[in-house]
Design a protein around this nucleic acid. Sequence first.
DNA 1: GCCATTGGTACCCTCGAGGGAACTATACCA
DNA 2: TGGTATAGTTCCCTCGAGGGTACCAATGGC
Lengths: 119, 119
Amino acid sequence: MKKEPEFCQFQEALGILVGKWKPVILVHLLNDGTQRFSVLKRKMPGITQRMLTKQLRELEDEDIIQRVIYPEIPPKVEYSITEYGRSLEPILEAMHEWGSSHVARKQAEEPETQEEKLS
Amino acid sequence: MKKEPEFCQFQEALGILVGKWKPVILVHLLNDGTQRFSVLKRKMPGITQRMLTKQLRELEDEDIIQRVIYPEIPPKVEYSITEYGRSLEPILEAMHEWGSSHVARKQAEEPETQEEKLS
DNA sequence: GCCATTGGTACCCTCGAGGGAACTATACCA
DNA sequence: TGGTATAGTTCCCTCGAGGGTACCAATGGC
């Protein structure tokens, strides 16, 4: 069952984090707390219902987020981070930090991007 | 050019780390230091030349690893982590740590896996 | 002359993530 | 009677990551 002794554990984390929208969803839920579907959707311009639903389901299946359905008639469904999901925060933070400096580095390396400012 | 102010920075890190083999390559290079192509390949059972070359090139393009060619005749090429690549270590560590507890958790949740031991 | 070794490249294929568009149910509002 | 809102689902399509296989170049060993 185990493949590379010890090595592949991070694949577990990666497997949960990859997906174009999952990290964004998690950050939103971590920052702003419990939110309903439509609010999340509005905060992620470009995502479709289909995609948002799918990503949310997958996160729910992994017990990273929680889904609460209110049986009202304009339906209401609220999503929130689970205790367990919150344990992913260090990873997201590390990635965010690294990503920021990576972007800064790339901008420093490519001064051609500055052309616009020269005109 | 920027999409979600602040949010998408971790995508930079994810973009580099995803790829079935990249994290494994990085861990090998981080743990065991400079290594030549064939050694890396041997350490990753299941990977093909084509794949290893591809993943290494992509990491090199991002300046995460370094490629040194010795003009000998059975060719010799050595790969090593760059200073910059080493800055990814905290992320890999965080993921590894989380992944380990995730695996432990899954095993605790699914005692059906124990069936084998009951026979 | 033939094979092995090393680090590749070239070509082709498969499968699934991601995504677009349309449809659904139910109640309220005008 | 028709429109709006919410949270989905269903069907279909595209594109690229991953992968399999074969080939190459240059040399040393038998």
